[in-house]
Amino acid sequence: MDVFMKGLSKAKEGVVAAAEKTKQGVAEAAGKTKEGVLYVGSKTKEGVVHGVATVAEKTKEQVTNVGGAVVTGVTAVAQKTVEGAGSIAAATGFVKKDQLGKNEEGAPQEGILEDMPVDPDNEAYEMPSEEGYQDYEPEA
């Protein structure tokens, strides 16, 4: 019985440690998101679009440190934060509304985080759909 109880105690310690790591990862992701939003706020009209992409990228980098179902929630929060940063930029006159959601080359930025393969159960990952990809044929 002692062996059984000791095993359960060790398992509990492992769960607590994993929860603490997840909590730490979420806190880091939130900190990076805040950094990115402050970065966007300090940019001029020309830099705002690039700044919004930076927020998304920093958040995406930190999301990889967070495991399990938390990833889905962090990704949703990050996307809403990026959308909010863009709205703030438009409201303050840093950028025109028609410039939001495009990178410096004018290509749409939507789907940055949505296409990231995420499995809350950590069982399997699927690649994003290939609808947006084109076949590449090298020139002879």
Rank of each mutant, 00 (worst) to 15 (best):
M1L: 03
D2S: 05
D2Y: 13
F4H: 00
K6S: 06
K6A: 09
G7A: 09
G7P: 03
L8T: 00
S9Y: 03
S9G: 04
K10L: 04
A11S: 00
K12E: 00
K12D: 00
V15N: 00
V16P: 00
A17F: 14
A17I: 12
A18C: 08
T22D: 05
K23Y: 09
G25A: 14
G25E: 09
V26D: 00
A27I: 12
A29F: 01
K32A: 08
T33M: 15
K34G: 05
E35V: 07
G36R: 15
V37K: 01
V40T: 02
G41M: 12
S42C: 09
K43V: 14
K45D: 00
E46P: 03
G47C: 14
V48R: 02
V49N: 07
G51I: 15
V55R: 02
A56R: 14
E57I: 02
E57A: 07
T59F: 15
K60T: 05
V63Y: 11
V63T: 04
T64L: 09
T64H: 05
N65M: 05
N65H: 11
N65K: 10
N65T: 13
V66E: 01
V66I: 15
A69R: 13
V70W: 03
T72D: 05
G73R: 15
G73K: 13
G73L: 15
A76W: 02
A76L: 13
A76R: 07
V77H: 04
A78E: 02
A78K: 09
A78P: 00
Q79A: 06
Q79E: 06
K80D: 01
T81E: 02
T81S: 03
T81H: 02
A85Q: 05
A85V: 07
G86R: 14
A89P: 07
A90I: 05
A90F: 05
A91W: 13
A91Q: 08
K96P: 15
K96A: 13
D98M: 10
D98C: 13
Q99A: 12
L100D: 10
G101V: 10
N103E: 05
N103G: 11
A107S: 03
A107D: 09
P108C: 04
P108D: 10
Q109D: 12
Q109F: 04
Q109E: 10
E110L: 01
L113I: 14
L113D: 12
M116W: 09
P117D: 10
V118W: 13
P120N: 05
P120A: 07
D121R: 12
D121T: 06
E123Y: 05
E123A: 06
A124C: 10
E126I: 04
M127W: 14
M127F: 12
S129N: 15
E131N: 11
G132E: 07
Y133R: 07
Y133C: 08
Y133T: 11
D135G: 06
D135W: 05
Y136S: 14
Y136A: 11
E137F: 05
E137I: 09
P138N: 13
P138R: 08
P138H: 05
P138S: 02
P138W: 14
E139T: 03
A140H: 05
